[in-house]
Structures are given as structure tokens and as C-alpha cells.
Design a binder for these strands. Sequence first.
DNA 1: CTGACTGCAAATAGTTTGCATGACG
DNA 2: CGTCATGCAAACTATTTGCAGTCAG
Lengths: 147, 147
Amino acid sequence: MIYTEKKIEKILRQRGCKITPQRRAILSAIIHSREHLAPAAIHKKVCQEHPGVGLVTVYRTLEILSELGLICEMHAGGNCRSYMMRRPSGHHHHLICSDCGTVIDFTDCDLGELERRLSKETSFKINGHLLEFLGQCRNCCKETVIR
Amino acid sequence: MIYTEKKIEKILRQRGCKITPQRRAILSAIIHSREHLAPAAIHKKVCQEHPGVGLVTVYRTLEILSELGLICEMHAGGNCRSYMMRRPSGHHHHLICSDCGTVIDFTDCDLGELERRLSKETSFKINGHLLEFLGQCRNCCKETVIR
DNA sequence: CTGACTGCAAATAGTTTGCATGACG
DNA sequence: CGTCATGCAAACTATTTGCAGTCAG
């Protein structure tokens, strides 16, 4: 865990944001989860400790955190997006089970070379990348065989 | 262009699907576009030639084509998903401008090694991957400087 | 104090479903 | 002809917005 609550609160203050109990709760929920959470899931988690926090507030907080690059957003298919703390390396990647939705994270990949080449060929200023592998996890493989 | 209309129609028939004018129109719209299209955009395009085709039909057709692996789905952020013909290599990747939304495709990447390693470490059966680089295209870079 | 934040309700946008009709094979 | 496909309307889900009251700094 790299960003502590305090660090993030400091960043928020510097940006002119106020630290409210709701934001603390939302932050805490995201920081203490290793998984990707959909807004609704974050809301549920937050409500367990702080009932009454609105889903709208969750959305608004996520937007701010995302803008500041503190959390990252992912789209795993379907209509859902989900969020988790951003790793210090500036990127992380996913291995997603298309059957049960399990997400495994990994960070080590070597795309620097490719990024440089693409950047040169296309004149894009590349800020980041998203790499997702799709497949079936061990359990879902088994189930498929049994069928 | 690798999959021709005829080829795809054959695949659909084999699968027990009927070839209707609507499906033809939808297929044609996707095949003749090099860009990613959102369902609504496909619908609009189809309606120019064949007014009266329902958006619902577009969704249903996309679902089938996607299931058969003939088109691929991508999520570029926001609430939109979009589709385009799948390349024969079984995967393709994107370079997306986060300002104007331009998408450039590329296919050559070397992820085989990484895929094998991940597969071994996690016992996942990996079916495919999605690689997206995010950044700013040449035009949007300029604009940023001018601001 | 004051501007930023919150929660509610309502509005949107995108997508899915139920059902009667229509058409491919 | 039977089965699958279509289009409409309605249902749903996720997300955003307007607004009046509240609170952090």
C-alpha cells in the first residue's frame, strides 16, 4: 500500500478539496481493498460503517480521485466500470476471468520499447497504457471440462 | 479486409442464424468501417441505407457477432462500448487519444512470452488480450501547447 | 462566513426484455 | 410451415444533474 490516507488527504487539500467524513470513508474503502470495486460496491462497503452516505457522493468522489490520478478506472466488459488505488509505477494490468470475473493484477510487463516505437510512428504523446488478458481461471476451467 | 460478407454469412448460417436484410446491413456497416463504432453509431449508419431498422436489432446482432468472435468489443472509458471487425490474428490493439477520441489500431506486439509466463503462474487459460495505449494525438498535443 | 460538499429526487443514457407480428429457409 | 428475427414499448441499470440545506476551513 503506497498512498496512505494522510498522503491522499494532503493532496486533496492542496487541490482545494475539503476533507469530509464521507470522503474519508470512501477513501478508506478503496485503500483497504485489493480488488477492483464498482461504484455500487464501494457504496455498499461505505454504508456498512457510515450509513446514509449517498451513492451520488461516491460517484463524485471517484471522479475527483480519478482526475487526480489517485485511483484508476477499468472496464471489464458489460456495463460496469470499477476502480482501485493506482500503483506507484503509474500503471498496472489485469488478468480477468471471463466466466467468474476474478481479477488478478500484475505490474511487470515490458512495453517501454513498444511504447517508444508507437510514439515515434504516430506522433502521439503516450501517457499510459492498459493491458488486459482475458481467459478462464483455474476453477472455471474445471467447470467447463465437467459440463 | 479479411472476413468478407459472404464468409460471415456462411458462419452465421452454420450456426443456425438466419440471414435477414437487417443483419446484412449491420454487417456491411461494420465491415466497411475502419473505425470502432458504438451501437448507436452503427444504427445511424444502417438507417441511412435501410431506415426502419431498430436499435434493438443492432444490439442483438452485435451480441451474436461478438459471441462468434467475429467482431471485438472495446471500452474506451465513459459509458460507451464500441465494436469493430476482428483481425485474423485474433487480437488487435489501440492507441487512443484521450482528448479527441481518435483510435489508431496496431497489431504487432510481442506479448506471447508474457502470456505464457502469466498462464503458468496463475493457471489461467488465456484466450486473448487487450492492449490500449492512452495519450494525446498530434493535433491535441498542439492545442494543449497553445492554451 | 463562504464556497465547497451532501443527499434527495429527477433526469439521462445505454442496454435489455416481453410480446405480437413477420419472414427466412 | 415452424422457428427464429424484428420492432415497438416498457423495464432496467448505471450515471449525471438541479437544488436547497449543511459543514469544513
